[in-house]
């Protein structure tokens, strides 16, 4: 009896001590002069649903969530948009969090079409930017976000891409990733956003 009591006390003590590990920088790193230097999201310039230019500066001092989609995508996009919508609603009042969705079908998704899609999603820029731009630039920046986006005539809608949502910190580093079609994974991802907010903005004060 005594042993059991003792054991359960130790368990209680241990669980109360477990603290969350900080979110690691997921980009490849290299040691330069004794300091770790990680790869970052490259410079970019796109146009959002309001015809406003969106660049790295749009996200300066913010953390943001990025993904790829296109408005006529018949497979995974609506589900991913639904869960991006949950993130939008949850952090609507918090201006430190922003979002960007790259349309990989730049020929179809003009600014007016993106505008209509944004109205349908009931979202607004600059909180959530649906962007278009140079096709080469849009498809190649996907790699910076650990995502795949390529033209593929055999894929539904003519493009092949994944359902990844990617969380970027204030230094253009990737800190968390989830599958945008998996509700439980998105729940975990939203906790990571809250956690990153705490760690990013407590250091700077």
């Amino acid at each position: 009896m005594r042993n059991i009591l003792f054991f359960s006390l130790i368990c209680l003590f241990l669980t109360s001590c477990v603290e969350r590990q900080p979110l690691k920088i997921l980009n490849r790193g290299e040691e330069v002069n004794g300091k770790m230097v990680h790869e970052r999201i490259r410079d970019f310039s796109f146009t959002n649903q309001d015809s406003v230019e969106v660049t790295n500066k749009t996200f300066a001092g913010k953390i943001y969530v990025s993904n790829n989609f296109f408005t006529t995508c018949p497979s995974i996009c609506p589900t991913t948009s639904l869960h991006m919508g949950r993130i939008y609603d949850k952090f609507l009042e918090d201006d430190r969090v922003r979002m960007i969705s790259h349309s990989i079908d730049v020929r179809t998704d003009s600014v007016p079409i993106l505008k209509r899609y944004a109205e349908g999603l009931e979202i607004e820029a600059p909180k959530w930017n649906l962007v278009t731009g140079n096709e080469e630039e849009i498809l190649s920046i996907a790699y910076d976000y650990f995502s795949n986006a390529l033209k593929d005539k055999t894929a539904p809608g003519g493009f092949d891409h994944d359902d990844l949502l990617v969380l970027i910190d204030t230094n253009r580093h990737i800190r968390s990733i989830c599958h945008g079609t998996d509700p439980a994974d998105v729940d975990r991802f939203m906790k990571d956003i809250e956690y990153l907010l705490k760690s990013e903005y407590s250091q700077k004060k």
């Binding site: 018949p74 609506p78 589900t79 948009s81 639904l82 919508g85 109205e119 349908g120 999603l121």
Partner: peptide, 15 residues
């Protein structure tokens, strides 16, 4: 399902 969702709720003001 991919547009109207598993629980039939659709997608915000779009679907």
């Amino acid at each position: 399902q991919s547009c109207h969702m598993p629980d039939g709720i659709g997608l915000r003001g779009l679907i």
